[in-house]
Simulated scan of single mutants.
Amino acid sequence: MGGTTDAAGSFSTVFDLQQPSAAPGSTVTVTAVVGGRSGSAALTVVGPFGSCRAG
């Protein structure tokens, strides 16, 4: 998955939650793995098109 890393070292990317469809109010867990380390975040779907915010 491609993305962008800013000057502070924060990485961002976009992913599609519509396959399968993610309903507003549902929770999605995203896990990133880099160099043998991992981190996870639970996100709440807030819009009809799968937009998320950190929950």
Rank of each mutant, 00 (worst) to 15 (best):
M1D: 05
G2S: 08
G3V: 00
G3W: 00
T4H: 00
T5M: 00
A7K: 04
A7F: 02
S10C: 04
S10D: 01
S12C: 05
S12L: 00
T13A: 07
T13K: 01
T13R: 06
T13Q: 07
T13E: 08
V14G: 07
F15S: 09
F15I: 10
F15V: 10
D16F: 08
D16H: 02
L17W: 10
L17S: 08
Q18R: 07
Q18N: 15
P20R: 00
S21P: 13
S21H: 15
S21R: 15
A22K: 04
A22W: 02
A22Y: 03
A22I: 04
P24I: 08
P24V: 07
P24Q: 13
P24C: 09
G25L: 11
G25K: 14
V28H: 10
V28D: 01
T29L: 14
T29M: 14
T29K: 09
T29G: 10
T29V: 15
V30H: 05
T31V: 07
A32G: 07
A32Q: 14
A32P: 05
G35E: 14
R37K: 07
R37I: 01
G39K: 13
S40N: 11
S40D: 12
A41R: 11
L43I: 01
T44V: 14
T44N: 09
V45Q: 03
V46Q: 06
V46I: 12
V46R: 03
V46C: 04
P48M: 02
F49T: 13
F49G: 13
G50M: 01
G50S: 08
S51Y: 14
S51M: 13
S51H: 13
C52V: 15
C52Q: 11
C52L: 14
C52M: 12
R53E: 09
R53D: 11
R53V: 10
R53F: 09
R53P: 04
G55D: 12
G55L: 10
